[in-house]
C-alpha cells in the first residue's frame, strides 16, 4: 500500500537524518564553519569603533545563511551516489513527498546548527539575550530557517545535476535569501535593543509571507526538477 504524502515525507526525512546522524560529517563541518566565521567576523571590524553587540544581529544572520547552505548542498548530493535517487523516484509516492521530506530533514539540520551557533554568538559578542528576547530570536530563526530550507532544498535538487554544483547553489540561492536575512536582521536588532514587538511586526510579516509563498511555490515546482 502506498503511504500518504505526509507519512512518506516523514520517512524520507528520517532516512536523511539517520544518514546524517551516523556520519555527522556535514553537521560538524557546518558547526565548525559557523564558529570560525563568528571569530573571523569579530576581527574584521575595529572593536574600538564598533561595539561587538552592535555587530551581533548582522553576524548572526550572515552565519545563519552560509552555514545553512553547507547542509543544503549535501541534501541531494547523498542521493547521487549509486543513483540512489532512482530508488526514491521509483517508489510509489508523490514527488511532493520527496520534496517535503528533504526540506524537513534540512530544516532540522539548519535548526540543529543554529542551536549551537546562536548561543556561541551570544557568548562571544556579549549579546544581551535572555527571557522574551531569546524567545523572539528563536521564533525569527525558525521562520527564517523555513524560508531558507524551502528555497534551498529546491535549488539543491537542481544544482546537483549541473556542472557547477558547488558554485551554483549559493549563486542561485543568495538573491532569494535577501528577503529572509533583511527582515530577520532588522527584527532581531529591534527586539534586542528593547523596542516593542510591534516595531518588528512589518518585518515579521514579510518573513511569514515569504515562507508561505515559497513553501507552496517550491513544492509545486519540485516535480519539474526531477522528472526523467
Amino acid at each position: 500500500m502506498a503511504p500518504s504524502t505526509l507519512t512518506a515525507a516523514l520517512l524520507i526525512a528520517r532516512k536523511d537524518l539517520a544518514i546524517e546522524f551516523r556520519t555527522r560529517t556535514a553537521f560538524f563541518s557546518a558547526v565548525v564553519f559557523a564558529l570560525l566565521a563568528i571569530v573571523i567576523f569579530y576581527f574584521a571590524w575595529d572593536p574600538t569603533a564598533v561595539a561587538a553587540v552592535d555587530l551581533a544581529p548582522g553576524v548572526l544572520w550572515v552565519i545563519f545563511t552560509f552555514s545553512g547552505l553547507l547542509g543544503l548542498h549535501r541534501s541531494f548530493g547523498v542521493e547521487m551516489a549509486d543513483r540512489a535517487i532512482d530508488g526514491l523516484l521509483g517508489a510509489p509516492i508523490a514527488r511532493e513527498a520527496i520534496y517535503l521530506g528533504k526540506a524537513l530533514a534540512n530544516l532540522v539540520f539548519v535548526a540543529a546548527v543554529q542551536v549551537i551557533a546562536i548561543p556561541a554568538i551570544v557568548l562571544f559578542y556579549n549579546m544581551p539575550l535572555a527571557g522574551r528576547a531569546a524567545l523572539a530570536v528563536a521564533a525569527i530563526a525558525l521562520l527564517a530557517a523555513i524560508g531558507l530550507t524551502a528555497v534551498g532544498t529546491l535549488f539543491s535538487a537542481m544544482a546537483v545535476n549541473t556542472r557547477l554544483a558547488e558554485l551554483l547553489l549559493p549563486m542561485l540561492s543568495l538573491p532569494f535569501f535577501v528577503p529572509i536575512i533583511m527582515p530577520a536582521a532588522q527584527a532581531t536588532a529591534r527586539l534586542l535593543s528593547g523596542r516593542p514587538v510591534s516595531e518588528a511586526a512589518s518585518w515579521l510579516k514579510i518573513l511569514i509571507a515569504f515562507d508561505l509563498v515559497f513553501v507552496v511555490a517550491c513544492m509545486l515546482a519540485f516535480p519539474h526538477t526531477i522528472e526523467e
Partner: peptide
C-alpha cells in the same frame, strides 16, 4: 533538463521580485 530548470528559476525569480522590493523599500 535545461529548459525545465530554467523555467522553474524564471518563475521563482518573478515571485521573488515583490519580496525584494518590499524589503528594500521598508529598509
Amino acid at each position: 533538463m535545461r529548459a525545465r530548470y530554467s523555467a522553474v528559476l524564471g518563475i521563482l525569480g518573478a515571485l521573488l521580485i515583490p519580496f525584494i522590493h518590499l524589503s528594500v523599500y521598508l529598509f
